[in-house]
Simulated scan of single mutants.
Amino acid sequence: MDIRYKYFPYPVLSPFSDDYLNSRFISEINVIKDISDLVLNLSVLLDDSELLHLITHNKADYVFHIECPQTSYRTIVKTSETEVEKRIPESKLNGRVSICTFIVAKDDLGSFRSDSFNEDYGKMTFHIKRGGILAIANQVNIDITKEINDLAKTNSVFSILRRDSNDDLGMQIEIDGDKIKLFLCNEEFYNYKNVAAVPTFQALLHAALILPALIYTFETLRRSGTDEYEMYHWFKAIEKALSKSNIKLNQETLENKPSYELAQKLLALPISRGLKSILNFGTEEEED
């Protein structure tokens, strides 16, 4: 969504009209990259007393419209606060993301006017319906350049292999190589291949297979040290991913942060996502 000039049947505070004099409505967006999320810090500056009165009396809201054309992701954030945080999975965004900020009426306004109206409006008042746009701030565009290094993709850091047996030893894990290897017996591997073909179940696979493998890896590093593993591709990938959250992969971190906590952070809370995928199976996911 791009903000374009348009006519309204009533005055609107905006950067492209002189409906208001000596009033400002400005938005500011700051972006922080987490391991798997983009954190948008959304803030506004408003100095029109009548519009501020509407917001403080729950008759209007600040509305941030966030849209990424390349991925078709769209969401809105409604708030009466001048600052709010919105976390978005990075997988949902790519390329240009536009954030358009408005003030929108929450109720019908029977006789609205502001002392900041252009003098051409005299003492006129206006009826504005619920959902009507009262103010438009500057549009902010950000560019998202994605790194192709997703720890949750088994072909980047993990290899899931078949162990030619039908024993009941469960999954075996090896970390002596460029990839973390997960070995499954014949039946487990067959079931894995069937489940992996269903995109909805990816989060469940992360929780069932990748999460325990990462916990095992962190525990091994904690006991044995990092020196003999630092040359491996998986180590460098995990180190880079943790650095996005200002976490160093060193002995101090391994001693002071639980392995399960680090593993869940890297995989963007796979248990929570897995449970949601079960509840949402067969239904369409709705935007917030």
Rank of each mutant, 00 (worst) to 15 (best):
C185A: 12
C185Q: 13
N186K: 11
N186H: 10
N186W: 02
E187I: 12
E187K: 14
E187H: 12
E187A: 12
E188S: 12
E188A: 14
F189L: 08
F189V: 08
F189C: 07
F189R: 11
Y190K: 14
Y190V: 08
Y190R: 14
Y192E: 00
K193V: 12
K193F: 03
V195D: 01
V195W: 00
V195Y: 00
A196H: 04
A196S: 14
A197N: 05
A197Y: 00
A197E: 05
V198E: 15
V198D: 12
P199G: 08
P199R: 11
P199A: 10
T200C: 11
T200I: 13
T200L: 14
F201M: 13
F201T: 12
Q202G: 09
Q202I: 10
Q202K: 15
Q202E: 14
A203G: 03
A203L: 01
L204K: 03
L204R: 10
L205T: 00
L205Q: 06
L205M: 12
A207L: 07
A207P: 08
A207Y: 12
A207D: 14
A208S: 15
A208I: 06
A208W: 02
A208D: 10
L209M: 08
I210E: 00
L211G: 04
L211F: 13
L211P: 06
L211D: 06
L211I: 04
L211K: 13
P212A: 05
P212H: 06
P212S: 09
A213S: 14
A213Y: 01
A213L: 03
A213W: 03
L214Y: 04
L214R: 04
I215L: 09
I215H: 08
I215G: 06
I215E: 12
Y216G: 01
Y216A: 09
T217S: 13
T217Y: 07
T217R: 04
F218H: 03
F218V: 09
E219T: 13
T220P: 04
T220S: 13
L221G: 06
L221N: 07
L221V: 07
L221C: 11
L221I: 10
